[in-house]
Design a protein around this nucleic acid. Structure first.
Lengths: 161, 161
DNA sequence: GTCCCTGCAAACTATTTGCACCGGG
DNA sequence: CCCGGTGCAAATAGTTTGCAGGGAC
């Protein structure tokens, strides 16, 4: 939040009620959230907020590195907090659509090496692993890593398959 | 091409002039191609081909695993051949937008390990590295890996940023 | 007060769909 | 022949933009 305000100030942009509310709701979210979900959340506090403002605010957040855009193949674009939290990648179940996050130093290091071997200066990357979770594979007693899917707003969306 | 026809036959779908042409043009392409580019290519042989047919054909190709959809952050969706060719990942220059392909066994193996550690059965993945190529970083004599940008249709598109 | 910001609606872009006619098996 | 495929245009979905009025600094 402070970083956001700092960015605004540095660019002669204003801190407004709407921006603060949207940013606040965004930072309070775990995992991934879509524009639509963020709009809905924001409207619980201020029903007059419009789509455009959410889009514009999220663009600002992305510019200052506090949000990251993700497109997981299906429907709409998802956003997640970035910057203060440490980097992570994604593991997505192709059956139930749930998204897990993970970190792996070995992969990070190797990526850096690959980029350097092409003379590139690695700035960022995106790694998504798609597979079937234990439950989806029909392992009856399999402790599916996402049995506690409580935090997943995405789970509400019907999987297109 | 044969695999495509096999897939069509297996699903009681027809092999038509348009599908064959589009698929042929698609397989003749190196690297990544957009719907629009593929339509343009196809129209050089048959000007009456429509957008919808290209979309529908590419959807078929994707279903049977011969094409893969890619979304590199910016504009439109790109497609590339898959299946027969061996797997590769992407290295994208954030300055000039050029896309290189690479392979790295170490990363592949590590991904497999990560997925397994979560009980997942890894089906596919997507890895994109974004960075600045030597030229973009202002290294004068730097032999930019894409000095021969001849094959890149994408280079025509103005970079948004 | 000066601009930037907001909400609305219209505009845009990428993609999908309905439908009448065409053509492959 | 039959049923899926095609081309067109219209419909959608997600996102962006123009503009008149409102608010932060």
């Amino acid at each position: 939040m402070d970083q956001f305000h700092a960015y605004l100030a540095k660019n002669q942009l204003k801190s407004t009620r709407q921006r603060d509310l949207i940013a606040y709701k965004f930072f309070s979210t775990e995992g991934h959230i879509s524009i639509e979900e963020l709009l809905a959340l924001s409207r619980t506090e201020n029903p007059r907020i419009g789509y455009a403002t959410v889009y514009r605010t999220l663009k600002l957040l992305t510019e200052c590195g506090l949000a990251a855009m993700r497109r997981f193949g299906d429907g709409q674009t998802m956003y997640e907090t970035a910057g203060d939290t440490e980097h992570h990648d994604h593991l997505i179940c192709i059956e139930c659509g749930h998204v897990l996050e993970f970190q792996n130093e070995e992969i990070e290091r190797e990526q850096e090496r690959v980029a350097r071997s092409f003379g590139f200066n690695l700035v960022r990357h995106r790694l998504e692993l798609y597979g079937m979770c234990p439950k989806a594979r029909g392992i009856k007693g399999g402790s599916c890593p996402h049995d506690d899917a409580s935090k997943s707003l995405r789970a509400l969306r019907p999987s297109r398959s």
